[in-house]
Design a protein around this nucleic acid. Structure first.
Lengths: 239, 239
DNA sequence: TATCATCCTAAACGCGCGTTCAGGAATCCG
DNA sequence: CGGATTCCTGAACGCGCGTTTAGGATGATA
């Protein structure tokens, strides 16, 4: 997946590659055209000549990454982008910059990031539909939202890889990912709670409140992580 | 939680408030001191006079947000930061900028962001320990990692709120959060898979591979979301 | 050889940035 | 009253930015 050494590539390709590294590591704004030019061993003017502007260079970088992540289409029916990301995590010295760039694309809401997110979401939806159809996965009251949720959860370690590396004390490579395997599978197999009291309470509460208003009987659970422990409380301003 | 109108506050406070809005909405680099000064109705020189530098202003903004999020200490033993964030989501017209700033702090790995993450992680650990102790939650083979994971999962919708809003078609307020309630509780109650085949396979595979090397018998599951479907594959470069 | 397109650079332009500096206006204190 | 303190501004400085311009070197084509 890119075997030509940087020195042998054309100048335009070289510029794009070093730009991905800089943009991914220090961000678009903090990176100057002069820096990129120096990295690529060319003049700043050539960068503009090839890409029209700094923004054009960014677009080319986006396109390059989208292309590489979408190119896995020809594979099996398994989630393709996730698989490629995992391969990249296996070789951080080579693809670390791509990981960084990928994460900032998603967070910045660039056009390329949107396309990649949509694709990943679609792959997740397909995976869940398959799983529910063949009985290996539980059905859900809201399949789309579940798919969104699982996609988000999968991306969180990537977006917060710095925090993750900090609290774990090791860089986020596949070895760190491996330690996440069991807790993730535990969660996806048995869940977190030992009974369905909180879920039942939330179902009952949301039942009496189809879209807005009319609070239902309250049952504050012992502590649902990350979510409102009391789904019955009406919101202050619908906004 | 801040009731003084902006016009009545001291100039320094006014500057800090409009800076949080700008920094949160368009980022630190894309925001100029002159913009902030204009928003606050003061001269650019005054901004520097009060905060020493643009970086000093950022630090003051960080500190302000950390203080507000940590101030909930006096509450119950429930996750305090999560609760405050939820209140902020209820009133996006007032606290939307804080949400934005909070998210960028976490993503940028600023000192304030690190402190907040550590605090949230601590709250999650305590919650899980309590849940396991009183039998409402399953035990885990790796409690710390599980806590990290759940913390990350809880933050993902915040960091990717633009993607979330885009695919859902509505802004990420508590009404969007409400739709997430059931899928999250489903996941945390019953998990995703109907049986433990994948989890068992992963356990067996990781058993034969205590830390590095010696691959174990393979069992490729039908599709574990977000994780390596084949945890037995040795990694190419440990890095 | 002359022509032409391609690839590339040195130099400069204009601009907006963060910051500094010298001092004005108001308030408090003796 | 006089002097100190606090709060604030207008004007400028120097710098690095993205970009433009004019043209040099190279290699294919006729």
């Amino acid at each position: 997946m890119r075997s030509v050494p940087l020195e042998d590539a054309t100048a335009a390709a070289r510029i794009r590659e070093v730009a991905i590294v800089r943009f991914g590591r220090q961000g678009f704004e903090r990176t100057s055209v002069r820096q990129i030019a120096a990295d690529a061993g060319v003049s700043p003017a050539l960068v503009i000549h090839h890409f029209g502007s700094k923004e054009g260079l960014r677009a080319a970088c986006d396109e390059s990454l989208v292309r590489q992540l979408m190119a896995e289409k020809a594979r099996t029916e398994a989630p393709a982008i996730g698989a490629t990301i995992r391969e990249w995590l296996d070789r951080p010295e080579r693809f670390g910059a791509y990981i960084d760039y990928f994460a900032t694309m998603l967070a910045d809401g660039s056009d390329g990031g949107n396309r990649l997110f949509d694709r990943m979401l679609g792959e997740t939806v397909a995976m869940i539909e398959r799983g529910v159809a063949d009985g290996t996965m539980h059905p859900s009251a809201d399949l789309e939202m579940r798919a969104v949720l699982i996609t988000l959860n999968g991306l969180a370690p990537l977006l917060l890889r710095d925090q993750l590396a900090r609290v774990l004390g090791v860089p986020v490579t596949s070895s760190a990912a491996r330690r996440m395997t069991l807790p993730i599978l535990e969660l996806y197999t048995h869940g977190l709670y030992t009974d369905s009291r909180i879920l039942d309470a939330a179902r009952a509460a949301l039942q009496g409140e189809p879209s807005t208003g009319t609070p239902a009987p309250s049952d504050k659970g012992p502590g649902n992580p990350n979510r409102n422990p009391d789904p019955t409380r009406p919101e202050s301003s619908p906004a």
